[in-house]
Design a protein around this nucleic acid. Structure first.
Lengths: 191, 191
DNA sequence: TTGAATCTGTTGGATAAGCAACACGGGAGA
DNA sequence: TCTCCCGTGTTGCTTATCCAACAGATTCAA
C-alpha cells in the first residue's frame, strides 16, 4: 500500500512545522526561483527557527525533494490514480497528469535552472516508478516488474519533459494519445 | 506609552500559537456565533492541543476579550490614532472608528447574544478609556484625567452602540458630527 | 591580501507544546 | 433514579522547538 498523505500519525507540531516550511518555500520559489533562496529566508517567512529547519531537512535540496514529492502525490490522489491498478486508460491518465504537473511547475517557478530541473527529474521519476510498480504488482502476472516499470517511467518523464518545454504546445490530449501506444506496448503483459 | 502590537518580544512559539487560536476563533465566531463555540472546536481548528489553550487563556471568555482587544488596537493603529494627542479632530476620528468597529463586529458575528455584547462592551470601553487617558495625559493641563476620560468613554461607546443597533443607519459622518460637540465640551480643557 | 558581512550546519541547555489521564459537572435518555 | 456522553479545567511527564553560540565557507570591497 502506498503511504497515504493523511494516514501518517505525526506529532501535530511536526505536521504544523513542515506545513509552514512548505508553504513558505513554495511562495519563495514562485517569487525568486529556487537557486537564490536561502534557508534563512525560508525559516523567516515560515516563522520557525533555523535550527528547527535542520531538524527536518538536511538542506534546501532535500526540501525541494520533499515539496515535489508531496505535490506529486497530492495530484495523483486528486485524480484517484493512487488506489488503482494497471490499465491502458489509467496509464493514459497518469501521462496526462505528469505532463500537467511539469507544465504547472514551470509556470509556478521563477527562473528554473539546470540544477533545479535535474532534482525535479529525479524526484518525479521516483514517484512515477513507485506508483507504476504498485500498479504492476497487483496483477496476476508473475514476471518481474522492475524492468518494465523502469522503461515506462523514463518514457513517461521524457514525454512530459518534451511536452512541457515545447514553446507552442499541441493539445495535450492529442499529444498523449499519439504517444500512449508506445508506452503501453511495454506493459501489455500486465493488462 | 501604549504597548505597541509588534513591540512585544515574545517567544515565537507563543506568538504563533496565539495567532492560530485567534484565527480559528474568529472564523468560528463568524460561522456559528460565540455562545455555541466550545474550546475543543477552537483547538481542533487551530491545530493546537487543548491543554495548550489553557496555558494561554483561562477560558473562552478571556479569548473573546483578547480577540476584541487586539482587533481594536489594530484598528486604532491603522488609523494612526494610537500615537497622537487630544484634539477635537482626533476625537472625531476615534468616534468614527468605534462606530465602524461595532458595525463590522455585528456583521461579522453570527448570533450576537446578551453575554457576548456585554463582554464586548467591557473590553471596548477599556480600550477607549486607555487611549483617551493616554491622550489627555500628554497635555499640559494639571487636572485629573480620570473623570473626563470616563465620561467621554461611556458617551462614545453609547453613541457607537446606538449607531450600530440602528436598523436604518444614517450616514456615519453626519451622525458623528451631530454628536461630537456634546462629547468635546467635556474635554475642552485639554485642547 | 585583509577584513567585514552573510550564509551554512551543528550543539547543549531552556522552554513551550503535546499527551494521556483524572475529577468534576451538566444534560439526555432508559 | 441510573447511566452514558460530552465538555471543562488540571496535572506530570515527554518531546519538539527555540536560542545563543560556534566553526567553517563564500562573497565582496577596501
Amino acid at each position: 500500500m502506498l503511504p497515504n498523505l493523511k494516514a501518517e500519525k505525526l506529532d501535530p507540531r511536526v505536521r504544523r512545522t513542515r506545513g509552514l516550511i512548505l508553504a513558505a518555500f513554495e511562495r519563495l520559489i514562485a517569487e525568486k526561483g529556487f537557486e537564490s533562496i536561502s534557508v534563512q529566508e525560508v525559516t523567516d517567512r515560515a516563522q520557525i527557527n533555523r535550527a528547527t529547519f535542520y531538524a527536518h531537512f538536511p538542506d534546501k535540496y532535500a526540501l525541494l525533494d520533499y515539496s515535489i514529492g508531496v505535490r506529486f502525490r497530492q495530484e495523483m490522489e486528486r485524480r484517484t490514480l493512487n488506489a488503482c491498478h494497471y490499465t491502458p486508460d489509467n496509464l493514459r491518465n497518469m501521462i496526462l497528469a505528469v505532463c500537467d504537473f511539469l507544465v504547472h511547475l514551470h509556470s509556478d517557478c521563477a527562473q528554473p535552472h539546470q540544477q533545479f530541473e535535474s532534482l525535479v527529474e529525479g524526484t518525479l521519476k521516483k514517484g512515477i516508478f513507485d506508483l507504476l510498480s504498485h500498479w504492476l504488482k497487483q496483477t496476476k502476472s508473475r514476471s518481474s516488474t522492475e524492468i518494465p516499470a523502469t522503461v515506462a517511467t523514463w518514457a513517461i518523464y521524457g514525454l512530459a519533459s518534451l511536452y512541457s518545454h515545447n514553446k507552442k504546445r499541441p493539445a495535450l490530449e492529442k499529444f498523449v494519445d499519439d504517444a500512449l501506444p508506445l508506452v503501453a506496448v511495454n506493459l501489455e503483459q500486465f493488462t
